[in-house]
Every structure is written in C-alpha cells, then in structure tokens.
Design a protein around this nucleic acid. Structure first.
Length: 454
RNA sequence: GUGCCCGUAGUUCAGCUGGUUAGAGCGUCAGAUUGUGGUUCUGAAUGUCGAGGGUUCGAAUCCCUCCGGGCACCCCA
C-alpha cells in the first residue's frame, strides 16, 4: 500500500461541516467588533525573526516556528562556529524569518511602521492564524486562530470597560456561560513590593496562579523553593486567600497594599472599571481574581481572562493593558489595550455544548432533481431567478437515480428538494418536497422564493 | 524540554496466559423500491494487525528499536 499522507502534528483539516461552524464563530466575533468601531487589518504569516524574538520570554522564544533561509544558508556559519554554537544560536543564523506567534506583537510592529497613516486612538481587529511549536494536547494546537481587538494610543480606562462589554456580548451571542476574571499587574507588583521581594514578582505570580490547580500548600511549597522566606510567605497568605465580594476584597486590599503606591494605583484602576461596568447590563459575572497572572511579560495594567463555566477548557479569551509595546520598535509612549478570542477553543466548547444555530448545518436551501436535459432546460431559468433572489440552490449534475439524488440532499442537510418532471412541466408548476416533514406541495414558479423564509 | 498511556477493516473497539481461515457494532456499496431520502429487511466488500528486527515448529499476542497518536507537567488561546 502507498504510504498514507499526513499533516504535521497539531494541525488540522477542516471539512465543510466544520468550516460552517468555524465561520459562524468568526462572523459573530467580527460583527461585534464592527459594531464597536474596530477596523480590520491583516499582517503576513511570517515576520522577521528579529521582530518576534525576545517578546514572549525565554519559553516563548523556544516555541517560535522558524523558517529556514532560502539559498545556501550553510555559508552563513563558519565551520568553527558550528562546533561550538548552541542550537538556538545556529537557528538564528540559518533563519531570518519566523511564523507569527501571536497577533499583538505584529500589530505593534504594524503601528510603528504605519504611524503616519493611522489616526490615534487606533482601533483595529485582526482574525488570523498563529503558530506555536508547542506539544499539542487537549485544547492546544500548533496552528490556531486568534481574534484580536486592540486600541492603541489611548490611556483611558474606558477602553478596558469597552473590551469587557465586547467579551460579554460575544459570549452572549454564542450562548456560552462565562466568568470574566480581572486583575491588574500593578497590584501584583504592589504585592511583591510589600512583602519585600520586588524582583521575584514573576515567581510569585506564577506560583499563586496555580492556586486553583494545586492548592495553597503546594503554592507555598513552590514559593519556598523560589527563595521566599517563611515570613514573606506568611505576609502573602491573606492576599492569596482573599475572599468575599469584589467590594470586600478591595477594602481589605487597600489596607494591605497601603504602603505601595503602585499597588494602590492598580486598585484605583480596577475600581474605576468595576464602577463603570455598573452602567451597562452584563450577562457574565466579573470577578476580581488576584491569582490571575497572565504569563505574557508585556502587560502593565489591567489583565483579564475568560473561562467557560460549563466546560473543562483552558482560557478561551484573554487580554490586558500594555503600556509600552511599541517602545521596543522605537516608538515610545504609546499605550495599548486589547483582547484575544481563542477561536479554536471556542469551537471545542461549542462542540461540547452542541450550541450551534441550525443554519450552520445547511448551505444549499433547495436542490433540483435532474431527470434529463429536457427537464433541465425548463429548470435552469427558475434556478437563475432564485439565485438572483439570493437563495442558495443547486441542480444535481447527473440524471442519476432519484434515490441517489434524494440521498445526496439528505446527507447535505438540504431542507427542500424540487422535483420537476413531465407532469409538472405540463402544469407549469414545481413539486417541492420538504425533507424534514416529507410533505410535498405543487407550487407556482414564482412562489418558490417563499421557501427562503421557511 | 520532562513524565505516563495507546497503535488491529473507513471508524469505534474485541481478540493478547503464543496454536487452523483475525471478529463485532456503526459506516460504505448493492438489492427489496426503473418519480421519492431519512426508518425497516436481505446480501456483499474491506485488513502487510503502525514499521523493522528478535525469540519460536508457529507471533496480532512475548522482547527490542523506530515511527505515529493521545494525555499531563511546563507554558498558553
């Protein structure tokens, strides 16, 4: 037997059925973005390696898919270097391009390159695939779509509020119950300050981020391992285990973080956001969650994450404020804030909930049975007219057995079949069969457009 | 990068203390029904048992290597 063809690990083909579901997801998100005034852009699948390296931390660098240079790349490395160089160093010589790892960094690059063409504040959305050389597992792919919306060039916290509204609207449309978790990087910084270990902020946040998963004892063990003293860990306990309503949490936090100016600023920012959200009716609960510590090292203010309530799945949407992302590309002082929907995880969640609207299952509305050229000649003008009226219809291409044609309609979820033979032609009518109920009605040619609403 | 589990018709799996010709459900195809699908009935096809090597009179079954898949950690959408 010939060798079975295959696709790379962590990538997927999408069948027509799957594509209709996926397009429903993209269309929904896109339409919400548009109603909030975001404009579409696209950027290339590949960026220069230089643009991407160093933006996602050490772990992120390792997960960037690099593209081998064309031509005789071997000459770019001296044989002496070859023996001593690390794989990473060699990769940097052999590759000057890489597949994008997310949409935020390419967007920052876009803003800097097009600074003279865009108007600030600039609101853009972008729905494109990204690639990560991760080991695939549940809810994790090597190629997946992100649906980003960002505002750059505005410090206003109203942007954060707006993005939360968007999140709520989108998941409302999908019918997915969610919790929105909110935190602020400044609060995390404040916490690190008051326990006297400002340098260990990353270790601390990474550890407390695992609270839900591994429990308080293991978190403390990890903190100890990272070099915190028992005293410092004790100071941290009331903060990690903070409970009650959002208001209660804020009150307690204000006392604890009083000595930290940064921490207090973070609290004030979040209080403003929560306050403004009172003015809009939200479906989802928004919770202050101090254990939320998104890994990306460019967030500086509010951070948010969305989890589905009824399905076991990693976060399906995330985002936050990054004050100086364009700075690394030579354009300092520009603040941005954005969110990203993980379309592929939303797809998995919707599949588990089976929460797709009916019409994502059907494409063609009406199939005309083919009895032969004489009948086709009668049908063709009718079909043309229906298509003009924006009704998706098709003619079975072969004069095959009727059974076969009916089967085709059935398998493709085509809701109506038009049967036109010599009898119908003689009466100048069309026989329409409703495939759901099995009912057949003899209709005038002009009546056919009414199935549009059926 | 680390650890664990799994590879048998298109698919989901059974068979695995080595022993004739490798099975089942679902799906596929054909017919019952030459102008009627989805239900029903009847019949049929389908496999280098992931690949290579070893042990044996004999391997889907035991051992080794490789390849592929899944899950968890790390990290993340």
């Amino acid at each position: 037997m010939a060798q079975q063809p295959s696709i790379p690990k962590g990538t997927r083909d999408f069948t027509p059925t799957e594509m209709m579901k996926r397009n429903y997801i993209f269309d929904t998100i896109r339409s919400v973005y548009k109603t909030y005034g975001y404009l579409p852009i696209e950027t290339p699948a590949m960026e220069t390696l230089q643009t991407l390296m160093g933006k996602y931390g050490e772990e992120g660098d390792r997960l960037i898919f690099k593209i081998l240079n064309s031509g005789d790349f071997k000459t770019s490395v001296e044989s002496a270097d070859y023996a001593s160089a690390t794989s990473l160093a060699l990769a940097n010589k052999f590759c000057e391009k890489a597949l994008r790892y997310d949409l935020t960094v390419p967007f920052a690059r876009f803003v800097v390159m097009h600074r003279n063409e865009i108007q600030l504040p600039f609101k853009r959305f972008q729905i494109q695939p990204v690639w990560r050389a991760d080991r695939p597992q549940k809810g994790r792919y090597r190629e997946f779509y992100q649906c980003d919306a960002d505002i750059v060039g505005s410090d206003s916290l109203l942007n954060e509020v707006e993005l939360i509204q968007i999140v709520d609207t989108v998941f409302c449309k999908f019918g997915i119950n969610i919790s929105i978790k909110l935190n602020n990087r400044k609060i995390l910084t404040g916490i690190a300050e008051i326990i006297g270990e400002p340098d260990k902020i990353v270790d601390i946040t990474v550890a407390i981020d695992k609270l839900d998963k591994i429990g308080i004892d293991n978190v403390n063990a990890e903190l100890l391992e990272k070099g915190l003293t028992a005293d410092e860990i004790n100071t941290l306990q009331p903060i990690i285990l903070l409970e009650g309503s959002n208001e209660e949490k804020f009150e307690k936090l204000k006392t604890i973080l009083a000595p930290s100016e940064t921490g207090m600023k973070g609290i004030a920012e979040l209080e403003y956001i929560f306050g403004m959200l009172q003015n809009v009716s939200m479906q989802a609960a928004v919770q202050l969650d101090l254990t939320l510590a998104r890994g990306l090292n460019y967030y500086t203010g509010a951070i948010l994450e969305v989890k589905a309530n009824d399905v076991e799945m990693g976060s399906i949407c995330g985002g936050g404020r990054y004050d100086n992302l364009t700075g690394i590309f030579g354009m300092p002082g520009l603040s941005g804030v954005g969110i990203s929907f993980g379309a592929d995880r939303i797809y998995d969640v919707l599949n588990q909930l089976d929460a797709y609207p009916k019409d994502t299952k059907e494409a063609t509305k009406l199939l005309f049975v083919n009895f032969g050229d004489a009948e086709v000649a009668y049908i063709m003008p009718i079909i043309a007219k229906l298509r003009k009226a924006n009704i998706a219809c098709e003619l079975y291409p072969d004069a095959a057995k009727m059974k076969k044609q009916m089967q085709y309609a059935n398998e493709r979820n085509i809701p109506f079949v038009a049967i036109v033979g010599s009898d119908e032609i003689a009466q100048n009518k069309v026989m329409v069969k409703n495939m759901l109920t099995g009912e057949q009605t003899l209709m005038d040619k002009d009546e056919l457009t009414s199935i549009h609403t059926a």
